[in-house]
């Protein structure tokens, strides 16, 4: 047992889990082409969920603040992006990659700006008065979530909205006998870029150093002469913007969105951060990939279990590692 866990640790430890999951699924599914399609779908879903979850995890790690209103950023990101895309429908449908990309860039920029602004508002108005008080924090952010959902209902109505996809992201490419949707590849790529960007900032820059140190011991960073609260508002804004981008990408993936989107994704996001361990983006990525793969494999193998699959995954992982797979050092 001891040897086994050492062996396991040497070859990447918990990071091997998604690989193991994929291999197990390969045996169960049997057909390589279906397996490849599901794996790609799982990875791209995982990356979109990572976008939504990374901010929540960092925000909690740095300030011990759990924002139940986080899903409002996801919903708003989706609706803002969808609105911009439909306003630019001429560009979206045009047979020009340039116009397509511009529409996409504008939609994502709108989601990002919204996320930054809403994040600033949330942090400074809603959350700041209740730092260090978990009970009131949970209640207030939940209240803010209710209000945000109602605002979405008031602005966009309760009926589903169709999301236009930029023309160049439509369709699929065929690799061998596997057909891969371009949008999924794009979502995967965007998520990967975001992860690498976050990773570099956290590990190579002074701000990142402060954030990592602050996650471990906020008080000590302050005693060294740095205002964590000022740093925190920045992290909060970036985290909210990432959630909005995740929501925008998810809107394009689903192509039909309702105001319930944020609430549905929130459950997945919570499961991801619990599995991954709060406070580290590596853990969040790991959790997101696990959840994405599991959802797609189980959805194919046993559709009836699809809904419960994430809960089951979370239960197993919590029984094994009560703090999640890779929590930040505290």
């Amino acid at each position: 047992m001891e040897n086994l866990s050492q062996f396991f640790g040497r070859f990447g430890g918990v990071y091997l889990l998604p690989v193991g999951l994929a291999l197990g699924a390969f045996v169960l599914i049997g057909a390589p082409s279906s397996w490849a399609t599901l794996t790609i779908a799982g990875l791209s879903m995982g990356m979109m969920v990572f976008l939504m979850a990374s901010g929540l995890s960092l925000i909690f790690g740095l300030m011990d603040v759990l924002n139940f209103g986080h899903s409002a950023f996801i919903s708003f990101g989706a609706f803002v992006a969808a609105t911009v895309l439909s306003a630019l429908s001429g560009w979206v449908g045009a047979d020009s990659v340039f116009l397509n990309s511009m529409a996409l860039v504008f939609a994502l920029l709108a989601a990002i700006s919204f996320g930054l602004a809403a994040g600033w508002f949330f942090e400074s108005v809603i959350i700041r008065p209740v730092y260090h008080d978990h009970l009131r924090q949970i209640l207030i952010t939940m209240g803010a979530l209710i209000v945000s959902e109602q605002i979405i209902l008031a602005l966009w109505g309760g009926t589903p909205i169709t999301v236009l996809r930029p023309h160049f992201l439509e369709g699929a490419i065929i690799l061998g006998n596997v057909s891969v949707e371009i949008y999924r590849l794009f979502a995967f790529g965007l998520g990967l870029v975001a992860f690498i960007g976050l990773y570099l900032v956290l590990n190579r820059s002074r701000i990142g150093l402060l954030v990592r140190a602050g996650v471990e011991n906020r008080e000590m960073v302050e005693a060294l002469g740095f205002r964590i609260d000022r740093l925190f508002i920045g992290v909060f804004m970036v985290g909210s913007a990432l959630a909005a981008v995740g929501g925008a990408m998810w809107a394009g993936y689903e192509t039909l969105i309702t105001p319930a989107l944020g609430g549905e994704m929130m459950i997945v996001v919570f499961i991801v951060v619990i599995i991954g361990g709060l406070g580290s983006i590596e853990g969040t990525l790991l959790g997101a990939i696990m959840v994405g793969l599991t959802a797609n494999y189980v959805g194919f193998l046993a559709p009836k279990l699809a809904l419960a699959s994430n809960m089951i995954l979370m239960t197993i992982i919590l029984l094994w590692r009560p703090n999640g797979l890779r929590p930040a050092v505290k």
């Binding site: 759990l66 949970i138 549905e264 459950i267 919570f270 809904l307 419960a308 809960m311």
Partner: peptide
């Protein structure tokens, strides 16, 4: 804090 999240997930399931 996990409790709040897990109960929310369980309720939605």
């Amino acid at each position: 804090i996990f409790f709040a999240m897990i109960t929310l997930a369980a309720a939605s399931v």
